[in-house]
């Protein structure tokens, strides 16, 4: 099955549930084990959360929107995230060491665990950041 769907969301923690619902609706159309669907929803929600938490750090409230595009071609799943927050320096995107037990720093780790690849692209088309997550499913 091939598909491509996109939706934009206000950059806010209040949008994260909406992001998950959007993903779940799409993954319901794909024949995948529920466990894998749950993992993919988690990875996407963590990436969206990173935009809110880090891209808009210090911003109380914004009307800016972020866009999430989910595409499936053959068995290649690609999820694009577009935002106009602070420019990400990919080299600075790190997760904490797992044995350094403390709150925070796990979102990026989850994304890396779940997805095959996470790359910031330079083809922003008016956006500031364009993150692409890919996974063979």
């Amino acid at each position: 099955m091939n598909l491509s769907e996109a939706k934009d969301f206000v950059v806010s923690t209040a949008s994260l549930k909406e992001v998950r619902d959007f993903c779940r609706e799409i993954f319901d159309k794909i024949n995948l084990p529920q466990e894998q669907k749950d993992e993919l929803v988690l990875a996407i929600a963590e990436a969206a959360q990173n935009i809110v938490k880090h891209g808009y750090k210090g911003v109380e409230e914004t009307t800016d929107r972020m866009e999430i595009k989910i595409s499936l071609k053959d068995n290649d799943l690609e999820i694009g995230f577009f935002d106009k927050g602070k420019a990400v320096v990919p080299e600075n995107v790190k997760h904490r060491k797992l044995d350094d037990i403390k709150p925070g720093g796990l979102g990026t780790f989850f994304i890396k665990q779940i997805m095959d690849n996470a790359v910031f692209k330079k083809d922003q088309n008016g956006w500031v950041n364009h993150l692409v997550l890919t996974k063979k499913i």
Partner: peptide, 13 residues
């Protein structure tokens, strides 16, 4: 039914 890294942080804290 769902917990992300923020929820895990609450458990750790």
């Amino acid at each position: 039914s769902y917990m992300d890294s923020s929820g895990i942080s609450v458990l750790i804290e």
